[in-house]
């Protein structure tokens, strides 16, 4: 695109668009030929002040131009964000927003941590519940000595007729009556306890038990005693084979035998999510 075609008014100071300017360097016939000497003379002529309303107005405009020029240069040098283009500003804003989002996420997670730690301090009730659950598990597993009300059973078996079945029946009856801990001879009865016979003698968990058998059960003594005394129950079956059963209710019986929990090799808890 040639300026000559589209911008006839190349010289704003010229009175009319009587000529056009071609590309720089190309001589143009339309341009008035000004000898160099004349041009310099005109330069000195316009150096002489000519006061008129027009020149004053022009001077005012150029004054404003100079002012604006300096102001713009200064604002370009000093301003940081003001002169950025819209796209740059948007990119900058995106950056800042991203960072703010990340920081907000961090704040949120840190606040969660803090509230969790704070509530952890006031969670004595949960700790207490865990403690009591631990105690009941310890009692059930037989890892701690226990004491409390219950019955003390003494089974004499002069003829050696008390069988494993009868002992198992005893344990079953006691459990059915709500016994919370049972000891037979030196052995604590727990979930894994088994009763067998070794060389004619009863064994509990492999430990030989000698007659007369001493059994202690912690629970409600009256209920436990009643459970053993039901017709056709444990007492009757022992007496039938010539033995003797002595049941004593006590308020403060002690079970001091403990069961060492075995190391489990095969059973593993099923994770709750898979168990459903």
């Amino acid at each position: 695109m040639s300026p000559a075609q589209h911008e006839p008014d190349e010289d704003p100071g010229a009175p009319a668009s009587s000529h056009a300017v071609s590309a720089p360097g190309a001589p143009s016939a339309a341009r008035p030929k000004v000898p160099r000497r004349v041009a310099w003379r005109r330069l000195s002529t316009i150096s002489r002040a000519r006061l008129s309303r027009g020149t004053l107005l022009a001077a005012l405009l150029t004054l404003v131009l100079g002012l604006a020029l300096v102001a713009q240069v200064r604002s370009t040098q000093t301003a940081d964000l003001e002169n950025l283009r819209e796209t740059d500003l948007i990119a900058l804003l995106d950056d800042v927003t991203d960072r703010a989002d990340r920081l907000e996420d961090e704040v949120r997670s840190l606040e969660q941590d803090r509230s969790r730690l704070e509530s952890g301090g006031g969670d004595a009730a949960a700790a207490q519940a865990a403690q009591s659950r631990l105690e009941s598990y310890q009692i059930l597993a037989g890892t701690v000595p226990v004491s409390g009300p219950g019955v003390s059973v003494r089974v004499s078996d002069p003829e050696g007729e008390v069988t494993t079945t009868m002992m198992i029946d005893l344990v079953q009856e006691l459990r059915d009556a709500g016994a919370e801990a049972i000891q037979i001879g030196p052995a604590r009865v727990v979930a894994t306890t088994w009763i067998g016979v070794d060389e004619g003698r009863l064994t509990v968990d492999g430990q030989p038990v000698a007659a007369p058998y001493s059994v202690v059960a912690i629970g409600d003594g009256h209920t436990l005693a009643g459970a053993l005394a039901i017709p056709g129950g444990f007492n009757d079956s022992v007496r039938r084979v010539g033995g003797e059963v002595q049941v004593t209710e006590g308020e403060e019986l002690v079970i001091d035998a403990v069961h060492e929990p075995p190391t489990l090799e095969h059973a593993r808890p099923v994770p709750p999510s898979e168990g459903r």
Binding site: V34, A39, L43, L57, A58
Partner: peptide, 8 residues
């Protein structure tokens, strides 16, 4: 103005 056609 160099071309002598300057006009306020």
């Amino acid at each position: 103005s160099l071309e002598g056609i300057f006009n306020d």
